Simulated scan of single mutants.
Amino acid sequence: MTRSSYPLEGRPVPATRARLRSGKLLNLDCTLLSECTLYDLENGDIGIVVQDPDLPVPDRILIDDDKDLTRVFTEIHWRMGPYLFGMYLEPPVPLHEFHGAEEN
């Protein structure tokens, strides 16, 4: 994951009509890392805002979308403080269909 030293360099652009919604960041073993706010990006990927700008976040995580009730395998490609840019590695899966899903 790269951290930008210039505020606007490589910054992902929010979608014209971004949907703000709550979510959760999870390790690949489904343990909770943090609650977060999710928003759509113009290219179809996902923007993430965490409360703690120093929260250690691995390069690959799972994201639970509380509005869509989905879980998706995501790679973090960009970060500036509490703002993260995630690229979907597969289509989102409904939580009730996710293999190995645990209550968090």
Rank of each mutant, 00 (worst) to 15 (best):
Y6H: 11
P7C: 02
P7V: 13
L8K: 04
E9Q: 10
R11Q: 11
R11M: 08
R11H: 07
P12S: 01
V13S: 01
V13Y: 04
P14D: 06
A18F: 05
R19L: 15
L26Y: 03
L28M: 06
L28A: 01
C30R: 12
C30F: 15
T31Q: 02
T31D: 03
L32N: 02
L33I: 09
S34Y: 03
S34L: 01
E35A: 12
C36I: 04
C36L: 05
T37G: 07
T37K: 04
E42M: 04
E42H: 03
G44K: 02
G44V: 07
G44P: 05
D45E: 03
I46S: 00
I46F: 00
G47M: 01
I48K: 06
V49K: 14
V50I: 11
V50H: 05
V50L: 04
Q51G: 14
D52W: 00
D52A: 06
P53D: 12
P53I: 07
D54Y: 10
D54A: 12
D54K: 11
L55A: 07
P56V: 00
V57A: 06
V57F: 11
D59Q: 13
D59E: 15
D59A: 15
D59C: 10
D59Y: 03
R60T: 15
R60G: 04
L62G: 09
L62N: 14
I63R: 07
I63P: 08
D64H: 13
D66N: 07
D66R: 08
D66V: 08
K67E: 14
D68T: 03
L69I: 14
T70M: 00
V72K: 12
F73Q: 07
I76C: 13
H77I: 08
H77Q: 12
H77A: 06
R79I: 13
M80E: 11
G81C: 10
P82V: 04
Y83I: 08
Y83N: 14
L84S: 07
L84C: 09
F85G: 12
F85S: 09
G86K: 12
G86L: 10
G86T: 14
M87T: 10
Y88E: 12
Y88N: 15
L89H: 08
E90I: 01
P94I: 07
L95R: 15
L95D: 12
L95Q: 14
L95W: 11
